[in-house]
């Protein structure tokens, strides 16, 4: 009975911990970014024989890398849970039915898409990386602008700028997504019915690539704006 209650408690804790922990690496990286660039440590950082472009790039790569590693760790944790949690009741060591179900889904995907599934997988990975970069670049841009603009309460200013920019961006994104659904995705779905299988797969791949380019363009814009502020406007007091 005790173990049963503990099991419920820990499962509940897992369901809370997983989404919360998703933000921990990014928060830690942002704290390091702020301390390394905009506090007393910044005096040492900017005297290093490294250009500011490289410094920012290293911070960005670091954050993206840690976010991706954390995501992979969450996947590994999920894999452990679905391997151990289903209790075997037919005398075997582990009950692997969930894994067999996942295997069947992957088999069906491969049977339907063939080698295109690898193309889409690669594009998906690139889109995840670009989205992570975009998120980090947005936060760093807001932190940089907050540190440059505000003389005191730089963190508060960064929060305020992030909140405003994020709200405006989310508003624009929602409109863009609705318009994109109505004018691009749904019509494309109808037009693909007239296309051959190869052409339909090619068009979907091109569309995903276009979405990737949009993510990269916006991430680049934020990254370069941040870099511009660091190179020209930074004033450590």
């Amino acid at each position: 009975m005790f173990l049963f209650i503990m099991g419920i408690v820990f499962l509940f804790a897992c369901f809370i911990a997983i989404p919360v922990s998703f933000f921990v690496p990014q928060v830690l990286c942002c704290v390091r970014y702020y301390k390394n660039f905009f506090t007393d440590e910044g005096y040492l950082t900017f005297t290093l024989p490294v250009s500011r472009k490289t410094l920012l790039l290293s911070k960005m790569v670091n954050t993206v890398l840690w976010s991706v590693i954390h995501g992979l760790l969450l996947l590994v944790s999920g894999a452990i849970v679905i391997t151990i949690a289903p209790v075997p009741n037919r005398g075997q060591l582990l009950d692997l039915r969930i894994w067999q179900g996942i295997g069947r889904i992957l088999e069906d995907v491969w049977e339907y898409l063939g080698a295109w599934s690898l193309v889409y997988l690669l594009e998906g990975i690139l889109m995840v990386l670009a989205a992570t970069w975009f998120g980090c670049a947005l936060i760093y841009m807001c932190m940089t602008i907050g540190a440059v603009v505000a003389k005191k309460h730089k963190v508060l200013a960064a929060f305020g700028i992030y909140y405003g920019v994020n709200m405006g961006f989310s508003f624009v994104m929602q409109i863009a997504m609705v318009l994109g659904l109505v004018f691009v995705v749904l019509p494309l779905g109808a037009l693909l019915a007239e296309a051959t299988y190869g052409m339909a797969c090619t068009l979907v791949a091109l569309l995903l690539l276009m979405i990737l380019m949009i993510e990269v363009a916006v991430a680049c814009l934020f990254h370069f704006l941040t870099l511009g502020k660091l190179e020209q406007k930074l004033n450590l007091s």
Binding site: L3, M6, G7, F10, L11, I84, V87
Partner: peptide, 17 residues
């Protein structure tokens, strides 16, 4: 504890065979 507790949540229902 987490690993042990998942074992503790074992289903006591019999299985169809």
């Amino acid at each position: 504890f987490s690993v042990l507790s998942t074992v503790a949540l074992a289903s006591e229902d019999p299985a169809w065979e």
